[in-house]
Amino acid sequence: MRRNESLIHIAAFLLVIGLSAVLYAVFTDTRPGLKALDASLKERVSYHYLLKTAGNPAQPAERKVTVGKSGYEDGSANIVTAIVVDYRALDTLGEVLVLFAASAGVGLLMSKRKRKIETEASPIVTTAVPMIMLFAVVVGLYIIFHGHLSPGGGFPGGAIIASAYMIQFLAFRKKFSGNLFKILESLAGLGILGMGLAGLYTEGSFLANFLPTGELGAVFSAAGIMILYALIGIKVASELSSIIGHFIGEK
């Protein structure tokens, strides 16, 4: 083991030296060419995401995106959501899979753990928890369904709903059974995949938005994004709940 350790130290040392040398070269290099932060806003792809002109980049530069109008290529008033769930939807599917892998990994590795300490929660806790849960679920649902309008969306909303499950789990000491969550996350995942394949079938491209974009800024607009975010919310909530269940639950 000692021999390997010294090898690792040498490797790490060489890496640090090499990276420092390259960084020094970057800061002192005066040769022409683009460096970090050299792309102006108009040169970035995000400029076209802001103006909603990715489908037709040649549109005039004085174009404005106004709330209340319809007919834009993407119906989300929240620009981050437009990028995450529409323009770069495959990346979001990937992020969903990252969480899915983490949850499955926890399930695979922690399934043999047993909880040892067992204490009853006080009446104060058991009375307050249902109210807090209700509040958390409502906030979570609000954040999920306003993902296309205001900051938030399926990931944070799902995490808030999972927090409701966590306090319920801590207060009432129920037995953890992962099957419900497994089925929920499977169905939500299949729903996301189904939305993607529906796009492939109707618009000829995976995850293409085939539903009406609606009026920018309205509560019921950007139907495709809303459905995707609802599915992501279900998936994230059930995955995080199942991770929590595995960590603090007993078999």
Partner: peptide
């Protein structure tokens, strides 16, 4: 367009 060579090396590495 051309990147600064040292910067491009850092980014690629």
């Amino acid at each position: 367009k051309t990147f600064n060579p040292a910067f491009a090396f850092l980014a690629l590495a």
